[in-house]
Design a protein around this nucleic acid. Structure first.
Lengths: 214, 214
DNA sequence: GTGCGCTGGTAGACACTGTCTACATGGAAC
DNA sequence: GTTCCATGTAGACAGTGTCTACCAGCGCAC
């Protein structure tokens, strides 16, 4: 029923499906072609190289993530709440779409610089998100009345962003759970009233945005 | 002159050299064997699989990093200073040994779980560092007199660690510089009196450890 | 209507990879 | 002096990404 779903889109669809279920290791060019039901040379008509196809798949991931941010945004909420849901959305995406998230930051598999049609290069995909983050952080800082030479919003936002990314990355690897369990052996794996990663997120937000009761 | 530098060690040496200069993409099994001057089947005598050899190379990286921490440690300095040099050491290592750092966290290339001789599995390589971090964070928190229900040291340390890792990762990719430049277009690439990444590090430390003048 | 060219896909070759297996070779133990 | 084992060689195998030649349709000028 889809209007002439040209092979180009079908290849990306298949790739998205593969990376979601089996991870980037299964994203071979021939494998994608096989699952799409075409010969191994067919993708070449639309993507000059393997990396180009993977980049198109990753682009879907960035677009998906951005749409989740939009869907979860509540324009009327105070900046701090908006930042919290933004952070939660980021971490949820990373943990629920582990394979895609991994691909999105595997710059050795992507053409990060070159642009293929009239789209901007992949590396700039996170820029709109980042500027949004900067704006929210700036508004939050403006509302807080604590004095002191606050860091420029861009730097503060970068600090928060890198922290979220680090949590996502190390959490996806499992190192985080390992380290936390090793450091607090008293607690059972998940007997606490709250998910340990969620507790970590609260600490992270408190660190970058100040305690909630200030 | 080396006393019977058995091929096992030589392969690791060559691998370390390769990953330092050309990155993990050039760490093919046959490529390493070629540069070591042996046939492509030789490594199999010492490493049952390609991933095992890569894991041994990554292990060198973790050991190197740990020794740098030891070398830079000043036992008598206050916890906050020690944390700062630790953070600096981490980020310096990541930026100066980009390829090795990348390999160390490419779990798809490593045998993170299995142990090969009597060594602990690779995934636990960061545990000593982390417990050290927990200890320093705890001591720092104890010295600070600000009241409030501080987070448990393990969680606070995890928050700091993930932040450092995120800075290292996104910094290595270049996204950080891109984002910061895009957000503050007034500043020339490097006209500030201080390296932008260093400034970011200061903000990160302030966020997790409290402002320096408290 | 009959060629023409072009678009979109096929199929095979090439060099390369990691793994496996059969085979040399050399030195030490008995 | 012979056997045995450790160490390395060399070839095969399936698989990869890329490149190139080919080929089936199809619209379209003439």
């Amino acid at each position: 029923m889809e209007p002439e779903s040209s092979l180009r889109e079908r290849l990306i669809d298949v790739g998205v499906d593969v990376v979601m279920t089996d991870g980037p290791a299964s994203l071979g060019l021939r494998e994608i072609a096989r699952r799409a039901g075409v010969s191994h040379g067919a993708p070449r008509r639309y993507f000059p190289t393997h990396h180009a196809l993977l980049s198109a798949i990753a682009r879907r991931g960035f677009a998906d993530l951005a749409s989740r941010f939009e869907a979860a945004a509540d324009e009327d909420a105070p900046p701090r709440d908006r930042l919290r849901t933004l952070a939660r959305t980021y971490l949820r995406y990373a943990s629920e779409h582990r394979g895609m998230f991994e691909l999105m930051f595997r710059h050795d598999l992507l053409d990060s610089e070159t642009q293929h049609s009239d789209l901007p290069p992949l590396r700039e995909s996170t820029l709109p998100l980042f500027s949004h983050l900067v704006e929210l952080v700036a508004r939050h800082a403006a509302e807080r009345t604590t004095a002191g030479p606050a860091a420029p919003p861009a730097v503060a936002a970068a600090a928060l962003w890198t922290n979220l990314h680090g949590v996502a990355q190390l959490g996806a690897w499992g190192s985080l759970q390992l380290a936390l369990n090793a450091a607090s052996p008293g607690a059972a794996p998940d007997d606490g009233p709250v998910d340990p990663l969620d507790r970590l997120l609260m600490v992270v937000l408190d660190a970058h945005l100040g305690p909630v009761n200030a």
